[in-house]
Amino acid sequence: DESNKPILLPNESQSFERSVQLLDQIPSYDTHKIAVLYVGEGQSNSELAILSNEHGSYRYTEFLTGLGRLIELKDCQPDKVYLGGLDVCGEDGQFTYCWHDDIMQAVFHIATLMPTKDVDKHRCDKKRHLGNDFVSIVYNDSGEDFKLGTIKGQFNFVHVIVTPLDYECNLVSLQCRKDMEGLVDTSVAKIVSDRNLPFVARQMALHANMASQVHHSRSNPTDIYPSKWIARLRHIKRLRQRICEEAAYSNPSLPLVHPPSHSKAPAQTPAEPTPGYEVGQRKRLISSVEDFTE
């Protein structure tokens, strides 16, 4: 099969070098950035008060330690540790928490760990991170309901609301924008112990962030949302095809390698009803078989 044979790379090609550099910018793992907010007593309706908090309760602090690993920003190499735009020179604080497994990295933009500057009256330095995160974990210690939209931002799609209760338990629920209701189930609340709260809140936030990324990708319907490693695979396959075309153009005697095509017509299947918005969006999480067989 010609399409699977190794090909020689061009010795000097600026377009090839640019493509390789672009490939280096696509990590081999999925990345997520999640905002974390603490809401104190009497702050449920005040964005400024929430963003001005420099610490929270003892249970909130224990919750943070379970979310991930504490890292010092100045020691991080952005090409190895995903920071979601946090500055490593102290502009966004000294520490944050991050978490990773074999296929993804997540960083938490924690408002109480970011510096509260006197010259920044409206807390814009914090909002440029927190307001651009799709998902926020809100530790609501106010005793009042927290409403979506209290923290203004164009991309605040989903809130994971943590409400501490007695007996070391917590109520965990989801809020989302109306255009996200087909992807996020907000109907079920959970009672979770303090011990298990970081794991549950983190998983709910990661799932909500993946759904938000799919939702946000609708602005470019021709580019369905893939995982990062599938995006790398697609980029490599496009690069291979372009090299083959350039080689055939410079030397017409060489065969032009095309991806294999299936001449056999697909079997006719009964027509199915058109899937609704929710089903269609969830299918976009699934990769096409052509990603692996071309």
Rank of each mutant, 00 (worst) to 15 (best):
K5F: 15
Y58Q: 06
R234D: 14
L64W: 01
D79R: 06
S57C: 03
E47V: 01
D102G: 06
Y60E: 00
I7C: 07
L171H: 05
E72L: 06
D125C: 12
S3N: 13
S136L: 03
N220F: 05
G42S: 03
D120Y: 09
Q268E: 13
N209A: 11
K5R: 10
E168F: 04
K127M: 15
R234M: 07
V200A: 02
I151S: 02
L64Q: 01
I151M: 12
T61R: 15
V119L: 08
D30T: 07
N209M: 02
A271S: 11
V172C: 03
V81W: 13
G276I: 12
V279Y: 08
T293K: 09
L86K: 12
D79F: 04
F95H: 07
C169E: 09
K121C: 11
F155Y: 11
A189T: 14
Y249A: 13
L37I: 09
I34H: 00
A271F: 11
L197W: 00
I236A: 06
N209E: 03
C124P: 10
L9P: 10
L22I: 06
A205D: 00
E54V: 04
D223T: 10
I34K: 00
I137S: 00
R195K: 13
E246W: 07
T274C: 13
K152S: 14
S250W: 10
V36L: 02
S173C: 12
C98R: 08
Y249F: 09
L37K: 01
K127P: 04
N196C: 06
S142P: 00
Q77P: 12
F155A: 11
I103S: 06
I7K: 05
G90H: 09
T222I: 06
L9S: 12
G131P: 03
E47F: 02
K74H: 07
S187K: 07
V158Q: 01
S193F: 01
Q77S: 11
A267D: 14
Q213L: 07
R232F: 05
V39Y: 02
K117R: 11
F199W: 03
L86D: 15
P259D: 15
H235I: 15
I191F: 04
V119E: 14
K190Y: 05
V135M: 00
L8M: 11
C89K: 10
Q105F: 09
L256D: 15
F292H: 13
K33E: 15
V188S: 12
V200M: 07
H216F: 15
V162T: 01
V162C: 09
T222C: 07
K127Y: 08
K127E: 06
C76F: 10
N45G: 10
S3Y: 05
W99H: 05
L83V: 11
L256C: 15
L51D: 02
I110F: 03
Q94N: 07
R69P: 04
P252F: 09
L51H: 03
T222L: 06
V257F: 12
I71Y: 08
V158I: 06
R240Y: 12
L183P: 02
C244L: 10
L183S: 05
K5D: 15
F292D: 14
N220R: 06
G66E: 03
S28R: 09
W229S: 11
M114A: 05
I103N: 13
I110A: 03
E181H: 13
A231Q: 14
L254N: 15
I103Y: 10
S288R: 11
Q154L: 14
Q43T: 02
N251D: 13
H109N: 03
M114T: 04
N45W: 02
